[in-house]
Design a protein around this nucleic acid. Structure first.
Length: 477
RNA sequence: GUCCCCAUCGUCUAGAGGCCUAGGACACCUCCCUUUCACGGAGGCGACCGGGGUUCGAAUCCCCGUGGGGACGCCA
């Protein structure tokens, strides 16, 4: 049978890391088996669903490249279908009207909780051959409840957690349509999974408790029961549960925070799933390897350090044109131009972004940091005061002046620059850093950079000498 | 409270009864490289929650604890 999986978020917020991983696993499973991946928006909670949230989810999936074969289907556009099924179930006696008011149910729940019982519907309106139903109140619009079996157990072989067994006595008759006639979550899921021919339901394990109810309804509808795979949750970096109040962020936030989607995908893939010792792999490999057997049933803690490590890897690997495009956008966001125009106060030629990235990508693990680190090529840096004080001292002025004179005459390559500095430190019998460090601070504004000769080569002769002279013209301490 | 789930280095994990003196990765530490900071390379530290079984043999199977989590909505 053809594999059909689905991702079914409710649009009440952005696509967070847990949702993204669920989508990724569902997507990969379909890809692996040559099946279809379906996107379904579960928006039956009209109060909390928003179009912005729908868009945020779509954006998140688009960024990660999680393309779907069918959908997005919106449940609110399928109301007529649900109503038909609802009527069928009432006619068949597998669902019934319930006139218990919200207030009444609340009192019931309170009493049960007080008695240490599991809060549940008492079956007041459940039709039964052996009992007569109370008279129907005029002023209460009824909800529809599913007539859950009273005995027996629901069993399924969870693809990640193994066999799970829940007694029907633990379940009550859940509401499948509200008083206003709109169907509820558990019911819509059942109808949709059935009608959309879903073969594997891969979702968060907060749904484990819904599964027996859904299976019972599926059975009542005469549907084939799909296989279920319940993924455990992802904890925050601090081991705490992720929530709106605590630590949960949109996947798009990772983009803003300087992460490559390749790193996020690879990281997410390894969170709760493994393929032997494989740590670094692309999505094509992932789709080939992916299986449900190697998913850990226990919760996983998010680890930013490891994400950073993967990010560093992919910054080195990613296509240079794409990297330049990304960094250019990040620089542009801070009004730094990189394409041929000189920034204000910096009259000389500027190096190509790609050549700069070629030198700098090796040492970066974050795109924002990378953009920040290379900004000095495109605008005058504001030097770190402590570095200036430490490295640019009056005693280096003669050496620096003489170096500038030499540099002015040479062909501007890293090798030639290096040779000049070397000749200078040799003749003066000083250590290389004695010259390299002040140069670094003068040129880049900081005491950290790649080989200073390579930085200078990229900066260009005029600009490099100009920056050095700015300091030589000052009174140095 | 009731039901369900989970439990290997700090973290992500390998592990399907003997291949385990428990492997890999991130982080951390040391050394090397070096022109600073990184990158990179080589090492190191570091775990089977506890107790009972089953078995010739248990990280692995079973039971009981303990700890953590989830669910108990006219939310999804």
């Amino acid at each position: 049978m053809a594999i059909r999986t689905r991702f079914a978020p409710s649009p009440t917020g952005f696509l967070h890391i847990g949702g993204a991983r669920t989508a990724l696993f569902s997507w990969a499973y379909a890809k692996k088996h040559g099946g279809k991946f379906i996107l379904r928006i579960e928006d039956t909670d009209v109060e909390r669903s928003t179009p912005e949230a729908v868009q945020a989810i779509l954006d998140g999936m688009a960024w990660l490249g999680l393309d779907y074969d069918e959908g997005p289907f919106y449940q609110m556009q399928r109301i007529e279908t649900y109503k038909k099924v609802l009527q069928t179930m009432i006619d068949a006696g597998s669902a019934y009207y319930c006139y218990s008011s919200k207030e009444e149910l609340e009192v019931l729940r309170e009493q049960q909780t007080l008695q240490g019982l599991k809060p549940r519907y008492d079956g007041k309106w459940r039709p039964d051959a052996s009992k007569t139903l109370p008279p129907i109140p005029k002023d209460i619009p009824p909800v529809i409840r599913f007539k859950n079996p009273l005995t027996g157990v629901v069993v399924w072989d969870d693809l990640v957690k193994g066999r799970i067994e829940i007694a029907n006595t633990e379940l009550d008759d859940l509401i499948i349509a509200r008083a206003d006639g709109t169907p509820t979550y558990n019911f819509c899921v059942v109808v949709d999974d059935f009608e959309m021919g879903i073969t594997q339901v891969i979702r968060g394990d907060d749904h484990v408790n819904n599964t027996p109810r859904q299976i019972n309804m599926l059975k009542a509808l005469g549907a084939t029961i799909p296989q279920y795979a319940h993924l455990s949750m992802i904890l925050g970096d601090d081991g705490q549960k992720l929530s709106k109040r605590h630590g949960a962020v949109s996947v798009m936030q990772y983009h803003e925070d300087g992460y490559l989607k390749e790193a996020v995908l690879n990281y997410l893939a390894r969170l709760g799933w493994s393929h032997g010792d494989a740590e670094i792999f692309n999505m094509q490999q992932f789709c080939e390897w992916f299986d449900l057997d190697h998913i850990t049933p226990s919760a996983a803690q998010f680890n930013t350090e490891k994400l950073n490590w993967l990010n560093a890897h992919y910054i080195k690997q990613v296509d240079l044109d794409l990297l330049a495009e990304d960094i250019s956008a990040r620089l542009g966001a801070t009004n730094i131009e990189t394409n041929g125009h000189a920034a204000s106060g910096m009259p000389n030629l500027i190096p190509s972004l790609k050549s700069v990235l070629n030198l700098y990508r090796e040492r970066a693990n974050n795109l924002n940091q990378l953009a920040k680190d290379i900004a000095f090529f495109y605008q005058l840096p504001v030097a770190n005061a402590a570095d200036v004080e430490k490295h640019i001292t009056a005693d280096i002025k003669p050496a620096m002046t003489s170096l500038c004179e030499k540099l002015a005459k040479i062909e501007w390559t890293a090798e030639a620059i290096h040779a000049e500095i070397n000749a200078l430190v040799t003749s003066l019998q000083i250590k290389f850093p004695k010259i390299a460090m002040p140069l670094r601070v003068m040129l880049t504004g900081t005491a950290q950079s790649p080989s200073i000769d390579q930085v200078m080569a990229l900066l260009g002769k005029e600009e490099a000498l100009a920056r050095i002279n700015t300091y030589l013209n000052k009174n140095l301490k």
